[in-house]
Design a protein around this nucleic acid. Structure first.
Length: 736
DNA sequence: TAGCCCGGCGTTTTT
DNA sequence: CGCCGGGCTA
């Protein structure tokens, strides 16, 4: 058994599997068989006689957890199904649920998602009379979430802000404090709370901590580079006794710092565990040598990284190509053309288009529609984020817990019951003063001054919800949901609307009902509470349905972990990718670069780097320089040629559409002539060579101009070596 | 109360 | 340009 488990592994993989005792860090580069190592390691532990219940493996996504579970079970036998393989969040949710009585908690807690959080923060801002203009709701939610990622309580945020004299932080800490009170009242945790509360409880209850430390003898963490402070602390606490902690990750693929992930957790692993063994998996089974070396050229520009270089036995075929477009439509057209050119030899599901921002997807969507190529946009609006789904879920949440004000407010007037903003505002204020939930305030609606119509509507709504309250634990979630949909008037309103949109909504609701049916067939805990917990923790990024033959479109962030024959990385322009208007700080730039690296290493055979000279952003045209990442990838001539073109200013300078990096296929794709830069003589003060002062970028020299009048565009080389394309009219330049 | 209009704003989002 | 949210009006 032990031999069988390790015989298909390469030497470092084998070492990683066999090193079961003591701290171990596995640097697992893209496509190096990371999941294989983790699953084999679990199987190997079991073969050594380790009890399944002593093993904990944590991942970030449900998809990864499911995949891991499946592969472990494939390797060993079914009877080992009770190994704890789950996401951080579901581990903590289970922990809190299980230990609820010991930590003085209602085990039926709700889990609030981002939208719920925003609603609560909105209420807090109103209640505290804070000027909404200066405190944007999503900014506050993010700040609160970051604080939780760092295990900071409102008081911590307050004292930190006071020390810095940061008035924004002080106000945010007040919002945070009230926010926590509201969540507590509603019996809800947000995602950050799940982790933070678990850590806090374990810290406060040494006996309980000891129990878990003893129980979980072997701990594995996947995607360790993406852990935040709270997750890091959780693992450190749990592993402190046996110290059999194995972390797997790739610092080069750390792209979530903006969500609290700290790349130093992986880079400093050896500081936390000085005797840690380190294994590097560098043999790549996915990509061609060309792709790997090109990706390495880019990522090696980063300083904050452990040096490692992927290599492969794969044959040197395929290509890495730069694709230059005149504008975003041209970019999409060229991508579509190339897919059509190559589609005869492979399936559409072998193609993926990556972009930095969701807004870029529209152009591609239009282009794909135009030629009738099936496509799937991943991640724009997830199933459980759709309004109609959230509405039905809100009904279920309210049935589960009528004190859930967020859900109450969401559906009180959906379908329309004639209870508008004013009524609900009045009732809410009343509830607030009496320190009760809105639900409990309904009997006082008339007293609170609501109109007769509103009072009646509220009462019949209450009656409707009440019909479920007594029996919610006895009838199935599916039946509850069907009753809600049919008897609340929700479905009827959609049917009457009878638009394409409303029809889609009805379909989605039907899909939800069948998903609930699935839940009841699968889940051991079939209660309404169990269902709500489950859906709160799942997203459907795994809705990537590989059975359908479609081109995949997604942001680079979502691409991590996936692979495709043909990968198009689009919008490779300064300011878009790397993103940002002004100069980066180096950390941010390095993260952008890692994102580029992630994108590039998704490609198995063909990698296309696309950029457009001109792009419509927020309704305005922007002129972009090619991304430094294209240059770093070794295509210096893209920049050289652009600069040359800018400085020589010759009409009809010939520009090759593709800059080939291999001698292989696609050489038949034709070269487009480019006339983007015309030589316009024009009486204006912005002569080429003039030195100007820009309020943000400082001193610079005009090296190019195009357009006339209001449309006069200048390309200015600034002192720090950056060049920017600016519209003369709005650039606010002064002559010096 | 509900629907319309206008102004502001505009990365990425595993749970 | 297109979305969202707030405020105004029928």
């Amino acid at each position: 058994m032990k031999e069988i488990l390790t015989e298909n592994l390469n030497p470092p993989q084998m070492e990683a599997v066999r090193r079961t005792e003591g701290p171990l860090i596995i640097f697992a580069g893209a496509g190096t068989g990371k999941t294989k190592v983790i699953t084999h390691r679990i199987a190997y532990l079991l073969s050594l006689g380790v009890a399944p219940r002593s093993i904990l493996a944590v991942t970030f996504t449900n998809k990864a957890a499911a995949e891991m579970k499946k592969r472990v079970i494939d390797l060993v036998s079914q009877r080992y199904h009770d190994i704890w393989i789950s996401t951080f969040h579901s581990f903590c949710a289970h922990f809190l649920h299980f230990e609820a009585s010991k930590i003085n908690l209602d085990p039926n807690f709700l889990i609030y998602d981002f939208a719920d959080q925003k609603n609560v923060v909105k209420d807090c801002i109103k209640e505290l009379n804070i000027d909404e203009k200066n405190f944007r709701v999503s900014t506050i939610v993010n700040k609160i979430s970051r604080a939780k990622d760092d295990l900071k309580f409102p008081s911590d945020m307050a004292s930190e802000a006071e020390q810095l004299g940061d008035s924004f932080g002080i106000t945010t800490s007040k919002i945070y404090e009230l926010y926590q009170k509201k969540l507590k009242k509603a019996g809800a945790f947000d995602f950050g709370d799940l982790i933070m509360q678990t850590v806090t409880s374990l810290r406060q209850l040494p006996k309980m901590l000891e129990y878990y430390q003893e129980k979980l003898k072997y701990i594995m963490v996947d995607e360790y580079q993406d852990t935040n402070r709270a997750q890091y602390t959780l693992i450190k606490l749990l592993a402190a006794k046996h110290r059999n902690i194995c972390v797997v990750g790739d610092d080069d693929q750390s792209v979530y710092s903006w969500r609290g992930a700290d790349i130093n957790n992986i880079l400093d692993f050896n500081k936390d565990y000085p005797n840690a063994k380190s294994v590097k998996l560098e043999e790549n089974y996915r990509s061609t040598p060309k792709i790997l070396s090109t990706a390495y050229q880019v990522v090696k520009h980063n300083n904050a990284r452990v040096d490692k270089q992927l290599w492969t036995k794969n044959p040197n075929s395929g290509s890495v190509i730069v694709l230059k477009a005149a504008n975003e439509n041209d970019e999409a057209t060229k991508v579509v053309d190339l897919i059509l050119l190559n589609a005869y030899k492979c399936k559409l599901s072998n193609f993926a288009v990556f972009y930095r921002t969701n807004a870029q997807s529209r152009t591609f969507e239009e282009a794909f529609r135009r030629v009738g190529i099936p496509y799937a946009i991943i991640g724009t609006l997830q199933f459980y984020e759709r309004a109609e789904i959230k509405d039905i879920i809100a009904y279920l949440k309210l049935i589960h817990n009528p004190n859930d004000n967020v859900s109450f407010k969401r559906i009180i007037n959906i379908p329309k019951r004639g209870i508008g903003k004013t009524s609900i505002g009045t009732l809410e204020k009343f509830a607030f003063l009496k320190n009760i939930s809105i639900w409990d305030a309904i009997p006082f609606a008339a007293q609170a001054g609501l109109t007769k119509g509103a009072v009646n509507a509220l009462n019949s709504f209450k009656q409707f919800i009440k019909t479920f309250l007594g029996s919610k634990d006895d009838i199935s979630v599916k039946i509850i949901s069907e009753k809600v949909i049919n008897h609340s008037g929700y479905l009827k309103e959609l049917e009457i609307e009878n638009t394409p949109e409303s029809k889609t909504k009805i379909e989605n609701i039907q899909e939800l009902v069948s998903a609930i049916g699935d839940f009841e067939n699968r889940s051991p805990d079939k209660s309404l509470a169990g269902y709500l917990t489950q859906i709160a923790l799942i997203s459907d990024t795994d809705s990537l349905d590989e059975s359908k033959d479609k081109v995949t479109l997604m942001t680079l962030h979502l691409a991590k972990g996936l692979e495709f024959e043909h990968v198009f990385i689009c919008g490779l322009e300064e300011g878009l990718f790397p993103i940002g208007e002004y100069a980066f700080n180096n950390e941010e730039l390095e993260e952008e670069r890692r994102l580029m690296y992630v994108g590039m290493t998704r490609a198995k055979k063909h990698l296309y780097l696309c950029w457009a000279e001109e792009r419509n952003v927020h309704g305005k045209t922007r002129w972009n320089m090619p991304s430094r990442f294209i240059v770093e990838a070794g295509f210096n001539h893209v920049l050289d040629e652009t600069e040359q073109k800018l400085s020589s200013n010759k009409k009809n300078l010939q520009a090759k559409t593709f800059y080939k990096n291999t001698d292989n296929d696609n050489s038949d794709y034709n070269i487009a002539k480019d006339e983007a830069f015309l030589n316009i003589e024009d009486a204006n003060p912005y002569k080429i060579g003039t030195v100007v002062l820009h309020p943000v970028f400082g001193k610079g020299k005009i090296i190019e101009q195009s357009g006339t009048g209001n449309n006069l565009k200048l390309i200015i080389l600034f002192e720090n070596g950056q060049w920017k394309k600016l519209l003369a009219k709005i650039a606010n330049l002064t002559f010096i």
